[in-house]
Write a protein that binds this DNA or RNA. Structure first.
Length: 102
DNA sequence: CTGCTGATTGTTTGT
DNA sequence: ACAAACAATCAGCAG
């Protein structure tokens, strides 16, 4: 039984308001982002002139259409991107510590 | 120790 | 510049 995850997001609105972190270490991207970067061209190429709504949906379908192996490269990228985020977090931690020290 | 939540990431298109 | 569908994420916090 999947837990009803009511994901309510408002994009930038959150970053603008809700002040949580001093330097906000923004996490890394997600497999979808890398996958979209490659597929977006392919999808639009097969669906010339389709609107964002169609592309977005079709894109998602294709994403899952891939096997774990196909997503592997994207997940791998996501993993690497996450590492990048780790660096931000590191700086964020250092800064937070410094601030505390100060 | 475990799980939940929130914030975030990038694409497309349109105004 | 931002809004939403599309999907992943996953880090930090709390009981």
């Amino acid at each position: 039984m999947p837990k009803e995850k009511v994901q309510k997001r408002a994009t930038k609105a959150r970053a603008e308001k809700k002040k949580k972190d001093p330097n906000a270490p923004k996490r890394g991207l997600s497999a979808y982002m890398f996958f979209a970067n490659e597929q977006r061209e392919n999808v639009r190429d097969e669906n010339p002139g389709i609107s964002f709504g169609q592309v977005g949906k079709v894109l998602g379908e294709r994403w899952k259409a891939l096997n774990d192996k196909q997503r592997a490269p994207y997940e791998a990228k996501a993993a690497q991107d996450k590492k990048r985020y780790e660096d931000e977090k590191a700086s964020y931690n250092a800064e937070a510590e410094e601030e505390e020290s100060s």
